[in-house]
């Protein structure tokens, strides 16, 4: 359904005075999503997860240049096509209630979403009623303002926005931060349900555990690039390939709980070779020569030249 290949995003910033500065925040990023599948995008903050979502929706700021290939249903995703598709075929589920207009009743806002997706006013109204009922949101919730919603209600309202638009591709951007574990599970199940209905779902999160609960595949981002796209079961089967993925996995409390030392390179100071080379335990001279290409190792792509060891 969606395929992103070799995506690069560069921001032009004005440094002191008129000196321009180019800041490459996403390099050689790859991702693909099929219908009926949940693909989790996992990485630390600053790894380019949200920017990817904004690039797919065509809502990057004006000073961003995008290169690379993005295909939606086989056709290139140009800026014009993004404009036509967003809100209709591609929907975003935002991070928090802060993404709703604070002065507008939520029912009205979800209805507006439905109308923007092409429904007539009565059809949109009906879609909102139906969707709210589906997510056990009482009719009165429609007349509440965002600040009046509880954490769980807020999540369900935000999921509703994607459902009323009948989008085929749903991008959920960090849908579970700071939530009660029950609400997390509920939200994740809603996303899984959407995939079962045949939609493609991208779950952007820094929470690898949450991702593994529902994802079919997990794309691991590091410093603006995709280092590995693993199958969900690879994690428990000890088949994950990239040293960063393995380190992430080991850092979980139920595993060895060893934090990864060092920090992600900033866009101003990316290494020439492999982006992980300054923290990698396996690093060799060869790694520092050029960015590793995608290699197929144990049935999945990984950007590491020593992954097959």
């Amino acid at each position: 359904m969606l395929s992103v290949q070799d995506l690069n995003i560069t921001f032009t910033l004005y440094d002191r005075g008129l000196a321009q500065k180019q800041l490459t925040v996403i390099t050689q990023l790859d991702l693909d999503v099929k219908a009926g599948e949940v693909v989790a995008v996992v990485g630390a903050s600053g790894s380019g997860k949200s920017l990817l979502a904004h690039a797919i929706l065509g809502i990057l700021p004006d000073n961003a240049q995008v290169s690379g290939k993005m295909l939606f249903k086989g056709e290139p995703l140009t800026l014009n096509r993004c404009q036509d598709l967003r809100g209709k075929a591609i929907a975003l589920i935002p991070q928090s209630i802060g993404y709703l207009d604070p002065l507008m009743q939520v029912g009205q806002q979800v209805q507006r979403t439905a109308q923007l997706s092409g429904l007539s006013r009565p059809a949109a109204k009906a879609a909102v009623d139906r969707t709210f009922a589906r997510y056990r949101l009482a009719a009165i919730v429609q007349r509440l303002y965002p600040f009046q919603l509880s954490g769980g209600m807020a999540r369900r309202v935000l999921v509703s926005t994607a459902v009323v638009s009948q989008a085929e591709l749903v991008i959920a951007d960090e849908p579970t931060p700071g939530l009660h574990p029950d609400v997390v599970t509920e939200t994740l199940n809603h996303l899984r349900e959407l995939a079962s209905e045949g939609k493609g779902v991208i779950l952007i999160t820094h929470d690898i555990e949450a991702a593994l609960q529902i994802a079919d595949r997990v794309a691991v981002f590091y410093a603006g690039t995709t280092v590995e796209i693993a199958h969900a079961q690879d994690f428990s089967n000890n088949k994950i390939r990239h040293p960063y993925t393995q380190a992430l996995w080991r850092s979980l409390p139920q595993n060895e709980f060893i934090p990864i030392s060092g920090s992600q390179p900033t866009p101003e100071a990316l290494p020439d070779g492999c982006l992980f080379s300054d923290r990698c335990p396996w690093v060799t001279q060869e790694c520092q020569l050029e960015r590793p290409p995608f290699l197929q190792v144990r049935g999945a792509p990984v950007r590491c030249i020593h992954a097959d060891r």
Binding site: L57, I59, Q83, R86, G87, K88, A91, L92, P94, S96, G98, Y99, L100, D101, P102, L103, M104, R112, T113, L116, S117, T161, S165
Partner: peptide, 28 residues
């Protein structure tokens, strides 16, 4: 704001954004 970013992600145009979210939030 974040809510306008979300509105744009839903396909709202600049005029639509001002009509549905802008005026509401600046009139007060």
């Amino acid at each position: 704001s974040d809510y306008v970013l979300f509105a744009r992600a839903q396909g709202e145009s600049l005029v639509g954004i001002i009509r549905h979210h802008g005026l509401r939030n600046i009139i007060l």
